[in-house]
Design a protein around this nucleic acid. Structure first.
Length: 129
DNA sequence: GTTCTGACA
DNA sequence: TGTCAGCA
C-alpha cells in the first residue's frame, strides 16, 4: 500500500477533525459546501476525513488567517491541481490587506515564471515539533 | 452519544 | 459563525 493511498484513506469523523484542526464542525461543513474539501461518506452519510483532508483544512485555516477568502483559497487549490507552484504564503507577521494582495499577486506571478517546486505541505508536522 | 441538514430570535 | 431543531 503506497503512502499516497494511505493519506487518502477515509478515517476520521468530524469530531476528531475538530480536535486536530481546532476548527468548528460548522466551519468544516461550510468549507465543504464551498468546494474546498470533499470528504468521503460512511454508509450512514457521516463524513470521513483522510490525512490529506486534515492537511487541507490546516492550510485553509492558515490562508484564512492571512486574509484570503474562500474564493481565493479555491483558486489557489485549483492552481496546485494544475501543477502550478504557489510559494511563500506563510507569513510570520500579519501584513496589511494591501500587502496581502500585493504579495499574493507577486507570488502568483513568480509561480508562473519558475516551474513547480515548492508546495505548501507537511502541515501535520506542527503536531510533532 | 455523535453527526447531518436546514434555518435564523 | 454560532446555535437550535428534528432525524438517523
Amino acid at each position: 500500500m503506497g503512502d499516497q493511498v494511505r493519506r487518502n484513506m477515509p478515517l476520521f469523523p468530524i469530531g476528531i477533525i475538530k480536535q486536530l484542526t481546532e476548527l468548528s464542525a460548522r466551519q468544516v461543513r461550510y468549507y465543504e459546501e464551498n468546494g474546498l474539501i470533499t470528504p468521503a461518506r460512511s454508509e450512514g452519510n457521516r463524513r470521513l476525513f483522510s490525512f490529506n483532508d486534515v492537511d487541507r483544512l490546516l492550510e485553509i485555516k492558515s490562508l484564512l488567517e492571512r486574509g484570503v477568502n474562500l474564493a481565493g483559497i479555491r483558486e489557489i487549490f485549483e492552481m496546485k491541481e494544475r501543477g502550478i507552484s504557489v510559494p511563500n504564503l506563510h507569513y510570520k507577521t500579519e501584513p496589511s490587506e494591501g500587502d496581502i494582495h500585493k504579495n499574493l499577486k507577486k507570488e502568483l506571478y513568480q509561480a508562473g515564471r519558475f516551474g513547480k517546486t515548492s508546495l505548501i505541505q507537511g502541515e501535520l508536522s506542527r503536531f510533532f515539533n
